[in-house]
């Protein structure tokens, strides 16, 4: 049981918990935020598996760009009036 195994187990449990929360949250903005932190944890998973290229790409795209696109959609819709 080395240190990297413990990190791996913690990351796995957090990944599953965050995915569950992202699907089952009440409000949409909370789901989007949980999705963002899920992809940030996936970056740690990629680093553990020695894939730095994929880790850089996932960090920039998965947790930066996709989150901002979701938030912009929700902003534009919320301006239109009704509650989501």
């Amino acid at each position: 049981m080395t240190l990297i195994n413990i990190v791996e187990i913690v990351v796995s449990v957090l990944l599953i918990a965050l995915a569950f929360l992202a699907i089952n949250s009440k409000t949409l903005i909370k789901s989007v935020m949980f999705l963002s932190s899920l992809s940030m944890l996936a970056v740690i998973g990629f680093v553990i598996m020695r894939a730095p290229d994929v880790a850089v790409t996932e960090a920039v795209i998965g947790s930066g760009l996709v989150t901002s696109l979701f938030v912009f959609t929700l902003l534009a819709v919320r301006k239109a009036g009704k509650k989501i």
């Binding site: 995915a19 992202a22 699907i23 949409l28 999705l35 899920l38 992809s39 996932e58 979701f70 929700l74």
Partner: peptide
């Protein structure tokens, strides 16, 4: 929106 979020989660798992 939840469906698109589910699709993203599936994609992260496959990757």
């Amino acid at each position: 929106i939840k469906i698109i979020i589910s699709l993203n989660i599936l994609e992260i798992g496959v990757n």
